[in-house]
């Protein structure tokens, strides 16, 4: 499997799109530093960008790479290799390339700004960790979608719908539900509902660490009040990891049954 990861990674890190993606984060983070010298303000702005862009790009890359390497996958399937090594190897190659691209793009400007000398290093680490986890989660979802749907338009379409739901619509519906049922105690329900959205979880994880109550929103505040900062962060991390593991397990199961 390591060999497949290595080649899948090597293929992707030479892709123009990935350079563009790294460049985008470099420019974005650099620009944020130009606007403000305050590290935590830059981090909050960057967080908002990460929560939107990382899931979208990872989903699309996951779908795209699965589709565009279909014929090559056939060649690999004809080699004396077990299926799980091929598919998990390809997925891990994509996810690692994306995560690295994000780490470099977002990390270099912070390092240049002297993050290691400031007290913000742990906050910054959580921000990067969230971006990395989201890269792994959403590229797994994208790869899984492409594996499940041979129709490419449907695969890409579903990826965008999932992103729209989780990144945009979810919050609106959630707030609507809160307003609708405001007479009831909703705290536990709110925690439960948040667990179903990895983007929200990542947001809460970062904000709990940054300790910015003004930006936490309802769910962040509930997390903070009911679970405390460390338990809240622990729970968010565990559930995020589960979000990465479940689609990977599904990739494995589906790849064992699929015809090529």
């Amino acid at each position: 499997m390591l060999r497949i990861i290595r080649y899948s990674f090597a293929d992707l890190i030479r892709s123009r799109w990935l350079y563009f993606y790294t460049g985008f984060y470099l420019v974005l983070t650099g620009a944020l530093f130009l606007i403000s010298a305050d590290l935590s303000k830059v981090m909050v702005s960057l967080m908002n960008a990460i929560l939107f862009i990382v899931p979208l790009v990872a989903l699309l890359f996951g779908v795209m790479v699965q589709y565009y390497t279909r014929e090559f996958t056939e060649l690999l399937l004809a080699q004396p290799l077990p299926r799980r090594s091929i598919f998990l190897g390809q997925y891990l190659g994509i996810a690692t390339a994306l995560a690295m691209s994000f780490l470099l793009g977002a990390g270099i400007p912070f390092i240049l700004s002297g993050i290691f000398l400031s007290g913000e290093i742990w906050n910054f680490s959580i921000l990067l960790l969230s971006g990395v986890l989201l890269s792994y989660i959403f590229s797994a979802l994208g790869y899984l979608l492409a594996l499940m749907h041979d129709n490419r338009i449907r695969g890409f379409g579903l990826a965008i719908v999932i992103w729209l739901i989780l990144a945009v619509i979810y919050d609106g519906l959630f707030l609507l539900g809160l307003a609708w049922f405001s007479d009831y105690p909703l705290e536990r329900v709110a925690i439960g509902v948040t667990l179903f959205n990895p983007i929200d979880l990542a947001r809460i994880l970062i904000l709990l660490k940054l300790d910015i109550s003004a930006l936490m929103g309802y769910t962040g505040a509930v997390f903070n009040r009911f679970l405390g900062t460390s338990t809240g962060m622990g729970l968010a991390l565990v559930v995020l990891a589960t979000w990465a593991i479940v689609p990977v397990t599904l990739i494995r199961t589906i790849s064992l049954k699929k015809d090529f």
Partner: peptide, 20 residues
């Protein structure tokens, strides 16, 4: 798939990872 070490296969469509 260990038996596949005894088989060579030429797929119908020759498409490979573009950047390798």
């Amino acid at each position: 798939g260990s038996y596949r070490k005894d088989i060579s296969y030429l797929p119908q469509i020759a498409r490979f990872p573009e950047n390798l």
